[in-house]
Amino acid sequence: MSTDTMLRVEKGHAEPEELAAITAILLARAAATPSAVPAPRRSTAGWRRLERTPGFRAPHSWQG
């Protein structure tokens, strides 16, 4: 595989050392086992606060 098709710099100019560093990071991430990758955490609550819900609910709404 040609080195000019493996990575493409969209803006600016990347030195060979910078391309080598990003390549090493990408290869390390690709080789990581699934157990080494932490599970994503929820950033929001799974419930809603009543004061943030709209005032009107349809009579046939299951939200009650």
Rank of each mutant, 00 (worst) to 15 (best):
A20L: 13
T3A: 10
G55L: 12
A28D: 11
L19Q: 00
R48M: 12
A39M: 06
A58Q: 08
I22N: 00
I25A: 06
R41V: 13
G46Q: 05
L27I: 02
G64R: 14
E10G: 06
K11A: 14
R48F: 12
L50N: 04
E17I: 09
R29N: 13
A58S: 14
S61R: 03
H60S: 14
R48N: 07
I22Q: 01
R48E: 12
R52E: 12
S2F: 07
R48G: 05
S43H: 12
A14Y: 01
E15P: 00
A30L: 11
A28R: 11
L7A: 08
S35P: 00
A45D: 07
T53D: 06
R29V: 14
A31C: 10
R48S: 13
T5C: 05
A36L: 09
V37F: 01
E17G: 09
H13K: 15
F56A: 06
A31L: 13
A14D: 01
I25P: 00
H60R: 06
P40T: 02
P59D: 05
V9L: 04
H13S: 11
E18L: 06
A20S: 11
V37S: 00
A45H: 07
S2N: 10
F56M: 04
R52D: 15
L27P: 00
A45R: 11
S35N: 11
P34G: 00
W47Y: 15
V37M: 04
A32D: 01
T5I: 11
A24L: 14
E51G: 07
G64L: 12
R52F: 13
A28M: 06
T5K: 11
A31Q: 14
L19S: 01
R48A: 14
E18M: 06
T23L: 13
P54L: 07
W47N: 04
A14W: 00
L50Y: 01
T33F: 04
G55M: 07
Q63E: 15
G55N: 09
P54Q: 08
S43E: 12
W62L: 13
E51L: 12
T44I: 09
A24I: 05
I25Q: 03
T44Q: 14
L27Q: 12
R49G: 04
R57T: 08
Q63G: 03
I25D: 02
G55D: 09
W47D: 07
K11H: 14
L7E: 03
H60W: 13
E51M: 09
A28F: 08
A28Q: 08
M1E: 03
A24K: 15
P38G: 02
L50P: 02
A58R: 15
A31G: 10
A31E: 15
F56H: 10
P38E: 02
A39I: 05
P38H: 04
H60G: 11
A45W: 05
I22G: 00
W62P: 11
S2M: 03
K11N: 15
R41G: 02
D4S: 09
T23D: 07
L26K: 06
T53Q: 15
R57W: 03
H13M: 09
S43K: 13
S43D: 10
S2P: 13
Q63D: 12
